[in-house]
Simulated scan of single mutants.
Amino acid sequence: MHELSIVQDLLKVCDTNATEQGASSVKRVEIQDIIVRCCQCGREGTIMANEFVCPMCGSRELVVTKGEDLILMRLELEK
């Protein structure tokens, strides 16, 4: 359940920022894209949420090269 603690920490950071900025709510949270490399054809690129299939060859043998950690890229708050 390592993923759960990462998400909980990210939500805590968002909530803390909202409180410090006097925001009434968090409008949008944007995290770093997941970059994968296909072990079959070598294609490297982003994937869509929950679509761990290479768009070029259909292989499911993908290696995450960037984005395993949830990095907050953008946080939109509502005053």
Rank of each mutant, 00 (worst) to 15 (best):
Glu30Val: 15
Glu44Ser: 15
Lys12Trp: 11
Asn17Met: 04
Thr46Phe: 09
Asp15Leu: 07
Ile35Glu: 14
Cys39Ile: 11
Asp15Arg: 14
Val26His: 06
Leu11Gln: 10
Arg43Asp: 00
Glu51Lys: 10
Gln32Met: 15
Ser25Phe: 12
Ser25Arg: 13
Met48Cys: 05
Gln40Lys: 13
Asn50Trp: 11
Ser24Met: 09
Ile47Pro: 07
Cys38Thr: 03
Ile35Asp: 13
Val36Leu: 04
Gln21Lys: 06
Ile47Met: 09
Asn17Cys: 07
Ile35Lys: 00
Lys12Gln: 13
Val13Leu: 09
Val29Ser: 04
Val26Ile: 15
Gly45Ser: 02
Asn50Phe: 12
Val53Met: 12
Ser25Glu: 13
Val29Ala: 04
Leu11Ile: 04
Asp33Thr: 11
Ile47Lys: 05
Asp15Cys: 02
Arg37Ala: 08
Val36Trp: 03
Asn17Ala: 05
Val13Asn: 10
Arg43Ser: 08
Ile47Thr: 05
Thr46Leu: 01
Gln32His: 12
Ser25Tyr: 15
Cys39Thr: 08
Glu20Trp: 02
Val36Arg: 01
Gly42Leu: 03
Val53Pro: 10
Val13Arg: 12
Gly45Ile: 10
Lys12Ile: 04
Ala49Glu: 14
Gly45Ala: 07
Ile35Gly: 04
Leu11Ala: 07
Ala23Glu: 09
Ala49Leu: 12
Cys38Trp: 01
Ala49Val: 08
Cys41Thr: 03
Ile31Phe: 04
Arg28Lys: 13
Cys38Gln: 03
Gln32Ala: 15
Asn17Thr: 03
Glu20Met: 05
Glu20Cys: 03
Gln32Arg: 10
Lys12Ala: 13
Ile35Pro: 00
Ser25Asn: 13
Arg37His: 06
Cys39Gln: 09
Ser25Met: 07
Thr16Cys: 06
Gln40Glu: 09
Arg37Glu: 06
Cys39Ala: 12
Val53Ala: 06
Leu11Val: 03
Gly45Leu: 08
Ile47Val: 10
Ile35Trp: 00
